[in-house]
Design a protein around this nucleic acid. Structure first.
Lengths: 156, 156
DNA sequence: TATAATAGACAACATGGTTGTCGATATAGT
DNA sequence: ACTATATCGACAACCATGTTGTCTATTATA
């Protein structure tokens, strides 16, 4: 009987796998006309959603303050991925909406992730990848990604 | 035949699983007398290793500049996890060494990771977890963790 | 109608990375 | 042996990205 692998390998490999996918996505996005988009932008675009959202709402979805979300939205606006429009119902709010370019980026991201998944399927085989995903789902719930990573890792 | 899950779920769940383990580690470390240690400290302590290392070497192992590594070492030194000693062989160098407290933290971390792995084994079953780990290993190589996460995710 | 809650803007600040520069020391080439 | 090159650690400046706090306008509620 062989001994179990040490527990510390799991987090390292989980993170390596995560990073592999994200890097693969952005390499390909850059090739497909989105060279300036960064990982955090992708998560923010997801948080905007098809119907638009306010900065405060996006911040909540990403697990950061509304101010931090506002700065990310600033940069997405500069890059042409979202617009800000005043809300006619509630004049406190400004609704962030995806532009065509923003939607294009999201659609391409989904396609690229599917293709990367296909590559993994080619490595592991169809059943084995399904098992892998099932196991991952059993270990994690489907909470949204928190983007407060710097402070989470950091020294303080 | 059921359809495949969308590819974008994989990165989210991989990261969630990573974060689950790291948070579990630090919750337990805090309970065991290491409340101030942060994720980045753990990786840096690993990078120091049993024989000590210089700031520049630690930076290379973590994928950050020697200056950034130096700041992390400063904070580990303040917390009593490492010391800096001049190298008698090479007086340019200062060797960072683990203190007893640093070794204690690393030993406890290894034990806690093993225990967290046991919990996962209880959920998935022994064979299934082994398969999961095998699959992860096939998808990733064993490169050291890069800690340049803020800039990697960031806007710029 | 008074009070509380929420949106977004602005400012100040903390953290943790970066590059650039420097002097001291080792190392390699001639 | 001497010189050129490389490396170490320190220091400073800068930058990115998060934080909290404050402010006004607006909306919702008691």
């Amino acid at each position: 009987m062989s001994s179990d692998p040490p527990g510390y390998e799991l987090p390292l490999r989980l993170f390596a796998a995560f990073r592999l996918l994200i890097d693969g996505l952005h390499d390909e996005l850059a090739r497909q006309g989105h060279p300036d988009v960064r990982p955090v932008h992708g998560f923010a675009l997801q948080a905007v959603g098809p119907d638009g959202a306010t900065a405060a709402e996006i911040g909540r979805r990403l697990g950061v303050s509304k101010q931090a979300a506002g700065k990310t939205i600033d940069s997405l606006e500069r890059l042409g991925y979202v617009t800000r429009e005043p809300d006619v119902q509630d004049s406190r709010r400004k609704v962030v909406r995806l532009t065509d370019r923003g939607r294009d980026c999201l659609a391409r991201s989904a396609a690229i992730f599917d293709r990367l998944r296909d590559e993994w399927e080619a490595v592991l085989g169809r059943d084995r990848l399904r098992s892998f995903e099932d196991d991952l789902s059993r270990l994690t719930d489907a909470r949204p990604l928190r983007v407060d990573v710097p402070g989470w890792l950091g020294h303080t």
